[in-house]
Simulated assay, not measured.
Amino acid sequence: MKNWLQIAASCLLLIGLSIPSTAQTWTFYGVFPQYSQTGSVTKRLGYNLFLSSTSHATSQAAESPGVAMLALQYYAQPSLTYKVTDNIQVGVGYAYVRHNLFGIRVNENRLWAQTVLSHDITGSRIKMSHRLRYEERYPLRLSTEKWSLAQLGRYHVGATIPFFDPKQQKTGWYAALSNEAFFCFSGAKNSPISSKNAFYGENWTYGGVGYNTGKWGKIEVGYQYQNLIRNAAQDHRNLHLLQIQWATNFSLDGLTTWLLTPPF
């Protein structure tokens, strides 16, 4: 019971920190579909491919009344991971991102390196993870054809709570909670991500439920709240998103063996 209270208190604190304190905000509602494929290349070396898009609901023009979905972001990220120990993993990756933020169209390349620590909470089935990531972003603003640079640190903390005994079965329902804080070390001059806006300029909070199918991976649905300080005047953009994720996992061990085995 004590562990559950500690987790609940931590989540409430993180959510509280992410709620904007200024009156001037932009609020949107949308969807955040994701696909993640993870696998192993060797015993310690792994890979991941992550794809997502973010859209929000917007009112159409008078000649086309109703509600439409406006694409805010397309995201594609391949990465490699290396298992240092059973609980510690390091990784490097690249991401290509296309933005449409506040009428500003930006194409962006990202390079990042990270460390992930995972652990169980004693006396429970809860699995915790902590991810520290250093990220460099190179946005290209399409209207001016100018490049810039932003350097960020990101801290992600998450908890997975299975509603079944993982020692007895591999499939079943589970809950997931997470919070990610974004810290801007230097800011791009041609995108909303800037240290001139705020050092702690963005926060993502998530809660959802999922089902581990085993062979076909995990299907997860939840609510994500994203808060971004969008300019030096400390105006906030709030995104309330329905997050839908399909995560699969298969190994490339057999393919690697076949490629490295001489044909004679």
Rank of each mutant, 00 (worst) to 15 (best):
N87Y: 12
N3K: 11
T248G: 10
P33Q: 08
T42D: 00
Y47T: 11
G217H: 05
Y138G: 01
I219P: 02
A247D: 07
G222P: 03
T144D: 08
L51V: 15
M69G: 05
Q34V: 06
Y29E: 05
G123L: 11
H119C: 04
W258L: 10
R125F: 12
Q34Y: 02
W112N: 04
P65F: 04
N197F: 03
L17A: 15
S191F: 01
G91A: 11
Y206V: 01
T160M: 06
S52E: 12
Q114S: 11
G201M: 07
W246D: 00
P65L: 03
W246T: 04
R141F: 03
A57K: 07
H99S: 06
S178H: 03
E202C: 05
T58K: 14
T213M: 11
A175W: 02
N238F: 00
C11G: 13
A95Q: 08
F182A: 02
G93K: 03
A181L: 14
Q60Y: 04
I88Y: 12
F164P: 02
A61R: 08
A176K: 12
L51M: 14
Y94C: 09
G210S: 02
K189E: 12
L132W: 14
A159W: 08
F163H: 15
G158F: 00
S124I: 08
N190R: 02
S178D: 13
L177Q: 12
E135T: 02
F50N: 07
S191G: 07
R137A: 06
G172L: 04
A233T: 10
K43Q: 13
N227S: 11
Y75N: 08
L228S: 05
R105D: 13
V157A: 07
H130C: 06
F264P: 00
Y225F: 09
T115L: 07
A68F: 15
T205A: 09
L142I: 09
V221F: 05
L70M: 15
C184H: 04
